[in-house]
Amino acid sequence: MVRTDRLSPAGLRAGRAAPPPRRRPARRGGAGHRPPWWVLAVFVLPALALYTVFIVYPLFSALQYSLFGWQGTRQTGLVGLENFRHLFGGIYGERLWRAFGHNLAFFAGTMLVQTTLGLAFAVLLRRARAGRRFLQTAYVLPHLVSPIVVGYLWSLMLSPQFGAVNAVLRAVGLDALAQPWTGDPALALPTLILVNAWQWIGFPMLLFTAALAGLPPEYEEAARVDGASAWRAFWHVTLPLLVPAIGVVSVLTFVGNMNVLDLVYAMQGSQGAPGGSTDVLGLLFYRTAFNNPDPGAIGQASALAVVMFVFVFGISIAATSVLRRWEARLR
């Protein structure tokens, strides 16, 4: 984060005239003296309380729940890692790994489509004169629509008999391509991934547009003057400078796709039809917690939450710190 306060005129003047006074760490943005404790508390406490009670406390409780045995809603005593063992063993373990694989496919497929196209659109739009605003708006609109709406809209459009997609294919003579898109176990997951990418594409486009706007155009122009082709100038000059933005897109896509639920729920139901071929961790977690006849449901669902949390949060933190280092090297 940029600390612009360091650059404020007051700071500059102080720095030039004499070494800045050491004993006044409270001077940020030149706000003068620090208000008394109770005033600071009035400002900070409401947010702190709300966030702690409804976001942080439940996550720690989930950790605690996961270490106990359960009979319905009654805790029966510490069982150590028993709930975790249940997750990875037997038929549940098979479901877990299958769902995890689908999440990875979601992430990889969405990344591939949305990052490539999002970047291409951002770069091409830089040059576009006519209709730039309109095009950007068009790409971003699907991103604002609820995933539930996107899911139902696409399942109507992909319906084998009444759907618009197959109607278009038949109209242009591609009858052979008219498929039961969401009903075929082999096609359902790729179809979902494409719908997901359709919804998300505007987001990387916006991030890349913002990142490109922050790059001085002189770099690429200098390369062009030196005789590099447009493609080479982009590949060797602009693209490396976009690595931080690509990193941000990757991390956010990762977090989003590891927790995907709404879209799959709307299109394929809570079981990930057909035959679990589109089941994902989010759905498995939901079913384990709220649609599970096992009296130990709470412990098992909490164990799954802990595993997912550690995995998603751990990878995002690691990726972000690698990114920071990359960025530091670029400067």
């Binding site: 439940p58 996550l59 939450a305």
Partner: peptide, 17 residues
């Protein structure tokens, strides 16, 4: 830190709370 936390994973305790 909440920016990176998948808050849905706390839903079971939220439910009992």
């Amino acid at each position: 830190a909440g920016l990176m936390i998948p808050i849905r994973l706390g839903i079971v305790p939220v439910f009992y709370l």
